[in-house]
Design a protein around this nucleic acid. Structure first.
Length: 483
RNA sequence: GGCGCUAUCGUCUAGGGGUUAGGACGUCAGAUUCUCAAUCUGAAAACCCGGGUUCGAUUCCCGGUAGCGCUACCA
C-alpha cells in the first residue's frame, strides 16, 4: 500500500478526550507503520461551539502524547468557499437540492411523528419543487438549506477494515443537510470535501460514525470519486458501560497529565484498548508498536476504560525509566511543586539522585516525588497524621529518638551497615523491638508511614539531616505526647 | 420506535468445530520484610440465552436478550 494518507479531525468544542486520543493514536500508528502521511484537520464548522483556545489545547495534548502530524492543521473554517463549490456541483448534477423548510417546521413534524410513534425521516417536501416554484423562492431570497438527494432504492454497502461488510438500505437514509441555511457546511459535506481534496486514503475514526458512512459514500459516488477505505474503531466506555463522559471523572488527556501520568503510559494503555499486540507483551515500546500495528488486529467490541490498569502501567513506566530520564522528570516535578533547590544541580546532586532512585520503585504518579517523597528534597515537611497514629504510639519514643540521634552522630562510617547496627544495638539495650524504632524513625525522617528502607533513607539524607530530624521529632513528641 | 453494530473471567483481551479455554490489570493467600512498594509462588474468576448444522459447538447459521451507536440546519 503506497501513499497512505490518514487524518485525525477533532472539533474544537471540547478538550482532547481519551477516545479522541485513541483515534488519533491509531491513525498515527497506521501512518507510521506504512510510511504514510498523518494529517491534522480541525473541524470547526460549528461556529457557535468552536473555540480557539480549545484548538490550542488539543494540539498541546497531541504533542504531549507524541502524536506529531505531517500536514496541517487545516481548519474547515478556512475552506468555506470550497464547500459551497462542492455543494453547488452537487446541486448542478441534480444530486442535491435547495430546501426551504424552516427549523421550526421540521421540528414540529418530527415531534408529531414521535407522538404518533412513527419513524421520522425528512419527508422530502422540497425534494421535487417545480423549476418555477424554485426560481420564485430563490428570487425572493428565501433562506434555504441544501440537502443531498438520497437515491430511493438500492443499498449502500462497504467493506469496513474492522467491522467487515456493512451498510444500509438507501430508503432508510434521509435527505441529509449539506449546507445550513446560514451558508455553513455541515459535518458530512466538510469531511467528504476535505478527505477528497486532501487525498485521504483511509478514514479511521470512532464507530459512532459507522452509521454515517453510507451517506458519505453516496456523496463520493455523486461526485464521481472513489471512496477512501473506512476503518471504524470501537468506542471507549466508562465503568458503567455508558459512553465515557465527564461524570466518569477525568476524560481529557490534559487531566491525566495533571494527575502525574506519563505520556508513554497513557499512550501504551490507549493502544491496548481495542488493539492486541502480537505475543503476550503488553508493555510495548513505541517502535515495536509501530512495527506491529495492524487494523486487522483491532477488535469490534467497545472497551471499558480501566483506571486501575492505567495506574499500574504508569508505575511500570516510572519504574523502568532510565536514571537520566528519571532525574529530568523529578527535577521538573520539584520545580512545579516549588521545592526544587538550585543546590540539587551541584553539590547536593548525589542526594537528589539517590532520593529519586529510592522513590522510583514505589511511585505511582510523578507527583509522588513531590508529595509522599517530599522529605527527600525538602526539610520543610509535615508528619502525616496517619503515620503518627500508627508508629508514634509509645511515650518513651521521644527519649529513644533523642538517644538514637546521639548514637548516630557518632556512627562511623555513616553507611547502611553501620547505621543499622547502631539502631539495633540501641533497641536491644533498651529492650524494645528494632521494628518499633525503625518505624518511628521513618516517620521522623520522612513524615510518612510508607517510605523506602530506613537505612537507605538515612544514607541518602546524610548524617547531619538525620540527626537533626531525629531531634526535631523527639522535641515534637515531647511536646505532643501520644494519647 | 426505526436502522446499524457488538457479545469469552469484575475489566482489557487471546483463541477457536474436539483445548486442563491462555495472558494482563484487579482481588485473595503465601514467601520476603523495618513500613510500603517491587519481586517470586499459588488461588478464585469467563465462552449471554434458545434453537439449528454436526459424531461433536464456546467457536458456524438463525432467533431472542442485553449493551452501545445513528436517527439534528452537532461532529
Amino acid at each position: 500500500m503506497a501513499d497512505i494518507r490518514v487524518r485525525f479531525a477533532p472539533s474544537p468544542t471540547g478538550y482532547l478526550h481519551v477516545g479522541g486520543a485513541r483515534t488519533a493514536l491509531f491513525n498515527w500508528l497506521f501512518a507510521r507503520h506504512h510510511g504514510g502521511v498523518f494529517i491534522l484537520r480541525i473541524e470547526d464548522t460549528d461556529v457557535d461551539r468552536s473555540k480557539q483556545d480549545l484548538e490550542t489545547a488539543i494540539l498541546e495534548s497531541m504533542m504531549w502524547l507524541g502524536l506529531t502530524w505531517d500536514e496541517g492543521p487545516f481548519r474547515q473554517s478556512e475552506r468555506l468557499g470550497r464547500y459551497r463549490e462542492v455543494a453547488a456541483e452537487l446541486v448542478q448534477g441534480g444530486y442535491a437540492y435547495a430546501c426551504f423548510c424552516t427549523a421550526q417546521e421540521l421540528q414540529a413534524k418530527r415531534a408529531q411523528a414521535e407522538a404518533e410513534k412513527r419513524a421520522w425521516k425528512y419527508d422530502g417536501t422540497c425534494r421535487n419543487l417545480s423549476p418555477d416554484e424554485l426560481d420564485r423562492r430563490l428570487a425572493e431570497g428565501r433562506p434555504h438549506a441544501i440537502r443531498f438527494r438520497v437515491p430511493e432504492g438500492g443499498q449502500t454497502i462497504f467493506d469496513d477494515q474492522v467491522f467487515g461488510s456493512t451498510g444500509a438500505e438507501n430508503r432508510d437514509i434521509e435527505d441529509f443537510v449539506l449546507v445550513r441555511s446560514d451558508g455553513n457546511p455541515t459535518y458530512h459535506l466538510g469531511v467528504v470535501a476535505d478527505d477528497l481534496d486532501m487525498r485521504v486514503t483511509h478514514v479511521i475514526r470512532g464507530a459512532d460514525h459507522l452509521s454515517n458512512t453510507p451517506k458519505q459514500i453516496l456523496m463520493y459516488q455523486a461526485l464521481g470519486a472513489p471512496s477512501p477505505r473506512f476503518a471504524h474503531l470501537p468506542l471507549i466506555l466508562g465503568p458503567d458501560k455508558q459512553r465515557l463522559s465527564k461524570r466518569h471523572g477525568a476524560t481529557a488527556v490534559g487531566a491525566y497529565k495533571e494527575q502525574g501520568i506519563l505520556p508513554e503510559a497513557l499512550r501504551n494503555f490507549l493502544a491496548l484498548l481495542g488493539w492486541t499486540p502480537p505475543e503476550d507483551k503488553e508493555i510495548i515500546p513505541l517502535e515495536e508498536m509501530i512495527k506491529a500495528f495492524e487494523l486487522s488486529a483491532v477488535s469490534k467490541s467497545n472497551a471499558v476504560f480501566d483506571l486501575e490498569k492505567l495506574a499500574w502501567m504508569n508505575g511500570e513506566y516510572l519504574r523502568h525509566l532510565l536514571p537520566a530520564d528519571l532525574y529530568v522528570l523529578v527535577e521538573q516535578e520539584l520545580k512545579s511543586a516549588r521545592i526544587w533547590r538550585g543546590a540539587f544541580a551541584t553539590e547536593e546532586r548525589e542526594r537528589f539522585e539517590s532520593g529519586a532512585r529510592l522513590l522510583q520503585t514505589r511511585a505511582r504518579t510523578v507527583h509522588d516525588f513531590s508529595q509522599s517523597g517530599r522529605a527527600f528534597f525538602s526539610d520543610d515537611f509535615d508528619y502525616d497524621p496517619e503515620a503518627q497514629k500508627k508508629f508514634w504510639k509509645q511515650v518513651e519514643l521521644a527519649g529513644l529518638l533523642e538517644l538514637l540521634g546521639e548514637r548516630l552522630s557518632l556512627a562511623q562510617p555513616f553507611d547502611i551497615q553501620e547505621t543499622e547496627k547502631c539502631l539495633r544495638a540501641l533497641a536491644e539495650e533498651k529492650g524494645v523491638k528494632a521494628g518499633l524504632l525503625i518505624n518511628a524513625s521513618r516517620v521522623a525522617l520522612t513524615g510518612q508511614a510508607v517510605a523506602p528502607g530506613l537505612f537507605e533513607v538515612m544514607v541518602t539524607l546524610g548524617r547531619e539531616r538525620v540527626v537533626n530530624r531525629l531531634q526535631r521529632a523527639a522535641a515534637h513528641l515531647g511536646k505532643n505526647p501520644p494519647v
